[in-house]
């Protein structure tokens, strides 16, 4: 205990931030899509991002694992800064899992193969071990019996849970969710949200783009509202919902809640 307490101060400060975005700007052609984004996500912190369509939410979280390139500012993930260096990008992608709105499962691979692909080829894990790991996570998302089916044979909710299991198989430290429930029928939303809540309870660092406000109230440490490419307001869920400060936040909340 004492040894842990004596860790150097700056080291722990460094460790504390899972993601740091400092003055990030991004353009699509002439279009300024992310404007001066400053965001620090602590270890184990759960953040929900919401905002109107086209406000840049997807773009923001896709910059974290370099699916999109930012043009100015700094993004530091677990102490590693994102540059053009391929090895750094590899390192970050290994630690950051992502779940997409439309699942993006690989249709030519079985559920089990979808889950073992990255552990085998990226983490160089023995096949058997990878399969055990995949079965473990498939059991956690409650569909171990589907392991030998193909993605096309599963319901939307099941597919999305497979996608979560697939990401978890890489033992990520951070999970990104881009509207994981918005392509699902209402009765399937709950099963996916339950999985995400369980994940949050286990202390995973999460960055979720979602309009599921109950999920936000239940698990988020902070809710961030984005509009027109900038972060407009950020606050803990209770004050955020009970007492929004900014005009645009109020308008948005009244639209989706009322």
């Amino acid at each position: 205990m004492a040894a842990i307490a004596q860790e150097p101060a700056q080291e722990s400060a460094h460790e504390a931030a899972a993601i740091e975005m400092i003055g990030v700007n991004k353009w699509y052609g002439q279009f300024h899509v992310l404007r001066d984004i400053n965001l620090v996500v602590g270890q184990g912190e759960r953040i929900v991002i919401c905002g109107p369509s086209g406000s840049g939410k997807s773009t923001l979280i896709r910059c974290v694992n370099r699916l999109e390139e930012h043009q100015s500012g700094r993004i530091i993930v677990r102490g590693v800064e994102l540059t053009n260096d391929l090895r750094k990008i590899d390192e970050i992608r290994r630690d950051v899992g992502m779940v997409f709105q439309n699942f993006n499962l690989f249709p030519h691979l079985s559920i089990l193969e979808n889950c073992t692909l990255a552990p085998i080829w990226v983490r160089k894990m023995p096949r058997r071990e990878a399969e055990d790991l995949a079965m473990h996570y498939l059991a956690r998302v409650k569909i171990p019996e589907q392991a030998h089916k193909y993605p096309g044979q599963l319901s939307g909710g099941q597919q999305q849970r497979v996608a979560i299991a697939r990401a978890l198989c890489m033992n990520p430290r951070i999970m990104l969710f881009d509207e994981p429930t918005s392509a699902l029928d209402p009765e399937m939303v709950k099963e996916v949200l339950d999985t995400m809540v369980a994940l949050a309870r286990d202390g995973m660092t999460m960055l979720c783009v979602t309009h599921e406000m109950n999920f936000a109230k239940q698990v988020a440490d902070r809710v961030i509202f984005m509009d027109r490419g900038e972060i407009v307001e950020a606050n803990a869920p209770e004050p955020f919902f009970a007492n929004p400060q900014h005009e645009r936040t109020k308008l948005f909340l009244s639209q989706i809640l009322g």
Binding site: D221, N235, Q245
Partner: peptide, 11 residues
């Protein structure tokens, strides 16, 4: 999990 003070922000 310990309570965390969340920095709030308003543009």
């Amino acid at each position: 999990m310990a309570e965390r003070t969340t920095p709030s922000f308003l543009r």
